[in-house]
Simulated scan of single mutants.
Amino acid sequence: MTLIFAHRGSAGTHPENTMDAFLEAERVGADGIELDVQLTRDGEIVVIHDETVDRTTNGKGFIKDYSLKDLRKLHAHSTFKKKFFNKQKIPTLNEVFDWMKNNSLICNIELKNSIMDYEGMEEKVINLINRYGYAGRVIISSFNHYSIVACKRLDPTIEIAPLYSTGLYMPWVYAQSLGADAIHPNQKVASDEIISESMRNGVSVRPYTVNKAPQLKRLFTIGCSAIVTDYPEKAIKMRSEY
Rank of each mutant, 00 (worst) to 15 (best):
S165H: 08
E123T: 11
K60R: 11
T56D: 04
P162W: 12
L111M: 06
V28D: 14
E16W: 11
K89S: 09
Y66K: 07
Y242D: 11
A150T: 12
N186P: 00
I4G: 08
G120D: 05
W172G: 02
H145E: 09
T18V: 02
V125G: 00
S10P: 12
N17C: 07
L35M: 04
Y169D: 12
D70C: 06
I106L: 15
G12N: 11
L105C: 03
A161S: 04
Y146T: 08
W99P: 03
I126R: 02
E123C: 06
H145K: 07
R8W: 02
I90E: 13
M1N: 13
A182W: 05
L111F: 08
L71R: 01
I227L: 12
Y66P: 06
L178F: 12
M100Q: 10
R200H: 15
P232N: 02
K89Y: 08
D70E: 12
R206C: 14
S141W: 01
G12M: 09
F220P: 04
P171T: 04
A182D: 11
M1K: 13
R206G: 12
I90L: 12
G223W: 13
G32A: 03
L128V: 00
V189M: 08
K82D: 13
E110L: 07
H14R: 05
A21G: 01
F5A: 02
A150G: 06
K82R: 13
L93E: 01
V53I: 10
Q38P: 09
G179L: 05
K234P: 08
E159M: 15
I45T: 01
K237F: 14
P91Y: 14
S177F: 08
K124E: 06
G59Y: 00
V28A: 14
K188A: 10
L39M: 01
E44W: 05
I195R: 07
T166P: 05
R41Q: 06
Q215S: 12
S177T: 07
